[in-house]
């Protein structure tokens, strides 16, 4: 084992980590936004909306993420060509990002839904009684409380996504794991680089999980 080649390879690895973090951040933002929308649909009194959202959630939770990533990689350019009528190259990054957002939205939807349902019903009544519209009730009263309650769960799901971003190697995107692996292959030290990558994933995820625990305790008070 010779880990001395890792330091010179650092710039490439940092680039990979930045790609991973970019995917994570945008994926979580998009996933939470879409997930919140889905949750509101699922809780809606409109049977069509709630059925549609339920179908979406159950569908995406029943297929592997890897499949979604490859599927979107091929499907997104195809759909765009069909919509716009011309070739619109989207690239691996965009298609992966769309895949993450849509896949994670199914999981975030269930977290947000549980969060909303955990808020006592009277809060909605009180907000309505003050003359707020449904949108205002949700935006000003229910969702702020719900998000506070579910922050630990959202972060936990984000840690899972942090690890799952590594699946983008299938479509050739240079995330952290892919960067480490290819550097290792080129130099001829694949094991050292993979061990190093594993350590980094472990350190980041473990530290984040500890932070979540700490946060959970503070929010519980």
């Amino acid at each position: 084992m010779d880990f001395s080649a890792i330091l010179p390879a650092m710039p490439g690895l940092v680039d990979g980590m930045l790609m991973t973090l970019k995917l994570l951040l945008l994926g979580v933002l998009g996933g939470v936004s879409l997930g919140t929308l889905l949750a509101l649909m699922r809780l809606s009194h409109n049977p069509l909306l709630s059925k549609l959202a339920g179908l979406y959630v159950n569908y995406f939770r029943s297929i592997p993420l890897l499949l979604v990533i490859t599927w979107f990689y091929f499907a997104v350019p195809f759909i765009l060509r069909w919509v716009t009528g011309e070739d619109t190259p989207v690239g691996a990054f965009t298609s992966c990002l769309v895949a993450f957002m849509m896949f994670e939205a199914a999981y975030f939807c269930e977290i947000v839904r549980a969060g909303i349902q955990a808020i006592p019903k009277g809060q909605m009544g009180a907000a309505q009684a003050l003359g707020m519209s449904y949108g205002q009730c949700m935006r000003l009263v229910i969702l702020p409380q719900a998000f506070r309650k579910m922050t630990p769960l959202l972060l936990q799901q984000s840690i899972i996504l942090f690890q799952d971003t590594s699946l983008v190697y299938t479509v050739g995107l240079m995330d952290f794991l892919n960067a480490a692996r290819s550097r290792g292959d080129i130099i001829g030290q694949p094991y050292e680089f993979l061990i190093f990558a594993g350590l980094v994933y472990f350190t980041v995820s473990f530290a984040a999980a500890q932070l979540v625990k700490l946060l959970q305790k503070r929010l519980a008070v």
Binding site: P120, G122, Q123, G125, A126, A127, A129, P144, Q145, R148
Partner: peptide, 13 residues
């Protein structure tokens, strides 16, 4: 129409 509830329902956040 003002309304006051049994469980107050102030907004805790």
């Amino acid at each position: 129409v003002g309304m006051v509830f049994q469980h107050f329902e102030l907004f805790p956040h």
